[in-house]
């Protein structure tokens, strides 16, 4: 199975209409939900929500989480669940801050070393998965706990406030660079999604990733290099988590070990599941992930414009998530029928 929906050779001409409609709704539910969501917020607060400023806010929020979620989607398609992203991100950002702000090393060097460290963590994750043969879910949860401890110990030996200050000048300017009036991070996000789209849909690597997630046994027997793919997926997830955390730290001018809070739906796993990437591997579409990320960003910005109480906010997020996973389970059942 190379794609989410195996196409029958001869398309049955007599698909009952209600089912066709249902299928269309389920496959494009997220897009429809996004349109409805924008319509609701736009009618509730037309002058603020529909401004260019808010458009950029939404895109910037999407870019912050979106890059990690994109690579996370690859990992999930390959059948790997990574629960260590928050902690890998934290320890990468803290080590970056330590090199850049305390040892005062040049920006490029600190950045490259921090990213190499994140890659190493991804490599350890994949070693646990491939060599020790532990399910990725547990391996990454374990490594995440270790990373959290490491982050805390680096912070505590360098600072008393629980945060490492990052106020050396060049960093923030670089993060806030704008190209033709568009934030560089937003451009980067769209570039990442485009590249991953091509990679997943038009290269052999992409086909192999879907095949590995869909049926690991069959993929291995067909000579697919499963170990290399798992290593690839987990390393890039860890690196993107580190990159995002450095970006957040640079914008906030300090690095700490608190998990980047984003309400109930903060983690990339939840965002990816929300976007309909199957957990069992082999299914998921990167364009749907992008829509999901934007949906969540619109939700965040819209609710803060409407001044929704934190109570209602976490309720809405939690319910949206439950709703999304229920819809996804219905879709899978219809597809396999």
């Amino acid at each position: 199975m190379l794609r989410t929906q195996p196409q029958p050779l001869v398309r049955p001409t007599n698909t009952p209409l209600p089912r066709a409609v249902l299928k269309f709704l389920l496959n494009n539910g997220l897009l429809i939900a996004l349109v409805i969501e924008i319509a609701i917020f736009a009618t509730a607060s037309p002058e603020i929500f529909l401004s260019t400023g808010n458009l950029f806010t939404v895109l910037r929020i999407s870019a912050t989480t979106g890059i990690t979620v994109a690579f996370y989607t690859i990992a999930l398609i390959a059948g790997q669940i990574d629960l260590s992203t928050a902690q890998v991100g934290a320890v990468t950002a803290v080590i970056f801050a330590w090199m850049f702000a305390i040892l005062e090393w040049p920006l490029e060097l600190s950045f490259v070393l921090a990213m190499a460290f994140a890659a190493l963590l991804g490599l350890i994750n994949s070693w646990l998965v491939i060599r020790v043969k532990i399910p990725s879910l547990i391996a990454t949860l374990a490594l995440g706990t270790l990373c959290y401890g490491l982050a805390i110990s680096v912070i505590q030996s360098n600072s008393t406030t629980g945060l490492i200050r990052l106020n050396r000048p060049p960093l923030r300017d670089i993060i806030n660079t704008e190209i033709v009036g568009i934030p560089a991070t937003v451009i980067l996000m769209f570039a990442v999604y485009t590249i991953i789209y091509i990679l997943l849909n038009h290269t052999r690597l992409g086909a192999h990733l879907y095949a590995l997630g869909g049926n690991p046994q069959a993929a291995r027997l067909n000579g697919i290099q499963d170990k290399r793919l798992v290593r690839f997926a987990l390393m890039f997830t860890a690196m993107s988590a580190g990159f995002t955390a450095i970006m957040i730290a640079g914008r906030g001018l300090s690095a700490g070990a608190a998990t980047p809070v984003g309400g109930v739906l903060g983690g990339p796993l939840v965002a990816a599941i929300f976007s309909g990437v199957g957990l069992s591997g082999g299914s998921g579409r990167i364009e749907r992930t992008l829509i999901g990320v934007i949906f969540l960003a619109v939700l965040t910005s819209g609710m803060s414009i409407l001044n929704v109480s934190p109570f209602a906010r976490s309720m809405i997020e939690g319910l949206a998530f439950v709703f999304a996973i229920l819809i996804d389970s219905v879709r899978q059942r219809i597809e396999t029928r």
Binding site: V264, S309, F311, M315, E317, G318, I325
Partner: peptide
């Protein structure tokens, strides 16, 4: 998912 709902309820 259910954990998210419970958290939301508790905050509320």
């Amino acid at each position: 998912g259910s954990s998210g709902v419970f958290l939301g309820l508790s905050v509320g």
